[in-house]
């Protein structure tokens, strides 16, 4: 509330194209929702983010597991992983678009690239929580490789892994928006780009607020998944 109050106060000193008032932004938000395209843009970005997370996680989880189980592999691959992470996604996005076109695939790929690293790193950290004695116990119990994974490794890694997935989710939204910045005709990133070009600051605020709502929704969704999964394990 204090932030909105400060915003309202400052908006009195600047023209609307620099800083629109909270009231005008809310009015614009309602108008855009009523018109329809805003929800379509939201759906596009949400879809790209979720698909990006899905692709990133489906690559990062087995990759992180293998790295955690093999010191040799981790030593061999880690430098390249860190180097790849050091290249800003904004710089890679145009290349991805040249290679994969302007459609959904390029945005999903950018989102998955950004989501990959935190999920992979947290998978490794989670797996490292399993102690030698716990592995020894499972061997004494006669557990199979699958049982060791399902009954020991996964539950032990889960709290850290879920944090990684939550971070990956937030990062995949950023990746999707970056992809839309680079080249797109739809999505919230596109809306921010277009509104900036038209100096329509109120619309830009609407797009940013919608992005924030999207981020919070994903966060709450993950909290729910965490709660349900922790109950099961």
């Amino acid at each position: 509330m204090a932030l909105i109050g400060l915003w309202w106060l400052l908006s009195n000193f600047y023209p609307p194209y620099i800083l629109p008032s909270p009231g005008s932004v809310i009015a614009r938000l309602i108008a855009e929702v009523a018109k329809g395209p805003l929800l379509e843009h939201l759906a596009v970005t949400a879809g790209e983010s979720l698909l990006g997370l899905l692709l990133g996680a489906s690559l990062a989880l087995p990759f992180g597991y293998l790295l955690a189980r093999s010191d040799w592999l981790e030593k061999a691959v880690s430098p390249y992983l860190v180097a790849a992470q050091a290249i800003p996604t904004v710089a890679l996005a145009p290349l991805i678009i040249i290679w994969f076109g302007f459609g959904l695939i390029s945005k999903v790929l950018v989102a998955s690239m950004v989501a990959f690293f935190p999920i992979c790193m947290n998978m490794i950290a989670g797996m490292r929580r399993v102690g030698r004695n716990q592995y020894d116990l499972m061997r004494i119990f006669g557990a199979s490789t699958w049982q060791i994974f399902a009954k020991l490794e996964l539950p032990t890694a889960l709290p850290v892994l879920l944090t990684g997935l939550r971070m990956g989710m937030a990062f995949s939204v950023i990746g999707a928006v970056v992809g839309e910045f680079a080249s797109s005709d739809r999505g919230l990133g596109y809306l921010v780009n277009v509104s900036a070009g038209m100096m329509d600051t109120a619309l830009m605020f609407v797009a940013l607020i919608t992005l924030a709502i999207l981020g919070i929704s994903f966060h709450l969704l993950f909290r729910l998944v965490e709660y349900l999964l922790r109950g099961r394990f």
Partner: peptide, 14 residues
């Protein structure tokens, strides 16, 4: 280990 029919207790309860 599982073929030996042993029970094992570590220093930490594990």
């Amino acid at each position: 280990p599982s073929e030996r029919g042993i029970g094992f207790v570590f220093q930490e309860a594990t």
